[in-house]
Design a protein around this nucleic acid. Structure first.
Lengths: 341, 341
DNA sequence: TAAAGTAGCGAAAACGGTTGCGTAAATAAA
DNA sequence: TTTATTTACGCAACCGTTTTCGCTACTTTA
C-alpha cells in the first residue's frame, strides 16, 4: 500500500495539494463544494495529516511538556489528570517526564525542550532544585514555562500554587489546640518554596502559642527510605520526642505510621499526626489521617489552561503572577480535635 | 535572535549542511577534526536539532503513546513509572492519553495515532472495550500496539499480563480456608479478560470447596460512585449477605471499607476482604488490607522494553505471545488467615 | 605507472504539509 | 459595455533535517 499523503488526495481529485490542504483546514478560499469532496475522500481513504510535517511548517507542535518529580503520588497523578483534561479539550498532546527528584534529570529534560519539541512546559521542580537558572535557556527560546506547586519566586512567570504558609499554620495550630506541646515538622531537605513556606507557617503557629522553636523540631528526610525509617525510629525514642507531627510530604506519612506501629506508639494518644496528603485512603487508615488536602486536580487544570491560553495568543506574555488555590484541612482521627480555651 | 538551525552552523564553519548533519550524527564519512569543530560550535551556540524535522525525514518520532483508563490509580501510575524508565533509557518520549474508561475516547486516541504521531503504542483497554477491532487501523499502518494488563486475546501481539486466573483462585481459596462460606466477587461490568479470568479463578475455588455459585455472587459496579455505594449498602444488608469479598478493582476496596464503616460491619469478623490492589497504604488501612499485589512497575517496563525492541529491529514482527508476570497475595488483617484442615 | 580503492565533503532531492501570492473566471459596480 | 472586485484555485517556496549520490584528491595495489 502506498503511503497516504495530501498528494494522494490531490491526484485523486485532480486538485492541487494546496487546495487540499486549505480545504482540510476549512479555509475561506475554498468553495463549499470542493471542501465537501475533499472531506469525503479524506474520510473514505481514512487520511490523517502527518503531525510532524505540520509541526515543522507551522512551528507549533500542539504539545505540552509536563515535568514532575514522580508519578506514583496522589498529588501528581491528580494534577496530571487535571492537565490532561484541558489538554484534550484544547487539542493538545501531553508529554510526560519524571525527574525522580533529581536536578540533573530536570536539567536534561528542560534542555531537550529547547529543541522546540514542546510549545510550552508545566513544571513542578525536584527537591534538589535550588533555583530556576536552568530554565533561562527555555525562556530565551520563547518557550513558556509555567510552574505548579513546587515553584521558584525568582522566575517571572505564572505559578499555580496552594496556600502553603496558611495551611501549615492552620494545621500546626490544630495540633497545638488539640493538646500538642511539642509538634515537629517532618519534611525533606530542600530549597523548595513550598517547604520553607510550610516551615514558616509552622513556626508562626508555634510562636503564637509561645512554643519555642528549635532546629531539632524539624526532621529532615532523604530519598533513602531505610535511612528515613531509622531516623524517625530514633527520633521517636529520644527524650524530647514529638507529641505531634506535621508531615509535609505525603509519602512520609506512611513512614511515620509504620514507625508508630513498630514502636507501639498510639495515634493520636501518644502522637498526633497531620499530613499534607491527597491520599484517597486517608479516611480508612488506622487511625484515619488528618490531612491538608491540596486541590491537585485544579492546580493541574488551571496551570494547563493558563499555559494554553498563553500559547493561543499572538504575542503572549506570561504575567508574573501567583495563582493560589487553597488547600483544606480535613480533621480525622489522627488528631484529637480537642477544643482548648 | 535568528533561529538556530543546521544552516547556521554550516555558514559559520564554511561547511555544507549535509556535512554538519553527518558530523552531528557521528557519521564515518566525516573526519575526526571536522566532527570536533562541529560539535564544539554546536555546544557553544547551544544548538539542538529540531525533532520534528528529523521525525519527518526519518519517519520515526522516537515517541511512544501510552493509553490507559486513568492515572489516579496505583497500578497505572506504577506502570507509567516502569514505562518511563525504559523510555528514558532508550531515548524515547512518552505521550500519555487517558480514556477515562470510555471506549469512544479510546477509539479517538487510537485513530489519532494513525497519523504517525507515535512509533508504537502501549495500551491498557477501557472497561467499555469489548474487542480489539478498533486497533486494526493502527496495525494496518504498521504501528505496533502492545497490550498490558487489560488485554484482548483476539489480537495478535504481545500482551504483558499477570496471572489473573491463578491470583483470583488463590485469593478466593484464602478467603474460604479462612472461614468464608459465602465469598462474593466485587467487580465491574466489562468484557475485559482480566475480569472474566478473575471470575473464572474465583469460580474454580468455589467449586473445589463445593460452594455453589450463583450469579448474585457477583457484584457489578459502574463508574457511578453513588450508585455503587447504594448497591453495596443494599447487598451488605440483604439476607444472603457475603461474609467474604474478593475485590477485583482497587478503587472499589475503599468503597467497601466505607460501607462497612457505615453499617458497622467488622472486618474481618463479619466480612473478610481481599483486593487486587497496589496501594502503598494497604498495610496501614483499618484493618490492613489483604491484597493481590500486581507487579505494576514490571508490567509497564516489560511492555515498554518489548515495544522498543520491536521498534529498533529492521523488520520487526510482534510475536503473538503472553508475557505473564505473577502477582503476589499479601495476607493482612482484613482476612483471618485461619488454617482449616 | 596505471588502475583501483578510499576518505571527506557538497549538491540536491526528499519527508508531508502550509501559505503568500498570482491569476483566470465569475460577479458586481460604474 | 467597461472596470473593479470577488471567488476559487494553483504555483512554488518554505519548515529543518536526512540521505543518496557524485566528485575530488589522496592512498594503495598490481
Amino acid at each position: 500500500m502506498d503511503k497516504l499523503t495530501i498528494k494522494t488526495l490531490a491526484k485523486e481529485l485532480q486538485l492541487s495539494v494546496s487546495t487540499i490542504s486549505k480545504a482540510l483546514r476549512d479555509s475561506h478560499e475554498i468553495s463549499a463544494a470542493t471542501k465537501r469532496k475533499v472531506l469525503a475522500l479524506a474520510e473514505q481513504l481514512n487520511y490523517s495529516p502527518n503531525p510532524y510535517a505540520s509541526s515543522l511548517r507551522k512551528r507549533k507542535s500542539k504539545t505540552i511538556g509536563v515535568v514532575i518529580p514522580e508519578v506514583v503520588n496522589s498529588f501528581f497523578s491528580q494534577a496530571i489528570n487535571g492537565i490532561e483534561s484541558v489538554a484534550k479539550e484544547k487539542g493538545y498532546h501531553v508529554l510526560i517526564y519524571l525527574t525522580h527528584e533529581n536536578l540533573d534529570n530536570e536539567k536534561a529534560i528542560l534542555k531537550d525542550f529547547e529543541s522546540g519539541r514542546v510549545d510550552g512546559v508545566l513544571l513542578s521542580a525536584s527537591r534538589e532544585t535550588i533555583n530556576s537558572t536552568h530554565i533561562s535557556g527555555l525562556i530565551k527560546k520563547d518557550v513558556p514555562v509555567i510552574f505548579f506547586d513546587r515553584v521558584f519566586d525568582d522566575v517571572e512567570t505564572v505559578k499555580v500554587i496552594t496556600n502553603d504558609f496558611e495551611s501549615a499554620y492552620t494545621a500546626t495550630k490544630h495540633l497545638i489546640t488539640s493538646g500538642c506541646k511539642n509538634p515537629h515538622f517532618l519534611s525533606i531537605i530542600s530549597n523548595l518554596n513550598i517547604i520553607s513556606n510550610r516551615i514558616d507557617g509552622y513556626k508562626k503557629a508555634l510562636q503564637e502559642h509561645h512554643i519555642k522553636f528549635s532546629n531539632s523540631n524539624i526532621i529532615n528526610c532523604t530519598t533513602n527510605w531505610e535511612h528515613n525509617y531509622k531516623l524517625l525510629l530514633k527520633k521517636m525514642q529520644s527524650s524530647k520526642k514529638p507529641d505531634g507531627i506535621l508531615c509535609s510530604i505525603e509519602n512520609l506519612s506512611v513512614l511515620i505510621y509504620q514507625v508508630c506501629e513498630d514502636l507501639n506508639i498510639k495515634i493520636p494518644d501518644d502522637l498526633q499526626i497531620v499530613s499534607f496528603s491527597n491520599l484517597d485512603t486517608a479516611s480508612f487508615l488506622n487511625p484515619p489521617l488528618t490531612t491538608v488536602t491540596q486541590p491537585a486536580y485544579e492546580i493541574g487544570s488551571v496551570a494547563a489552561a493558563t499555559l494554553v491560553k498563553a500559547l493561543e495568543k499572538k504575542n503572549f506574555i506570561i504575567p508574573n503572577e501567583n495563582i493560589v488555590i487553597p488547600s483544606v484541612l480535613i480533621k480525622r482521627k489522627s488528631t484529637k480535635n480537642k477544643i482548648l480555651s
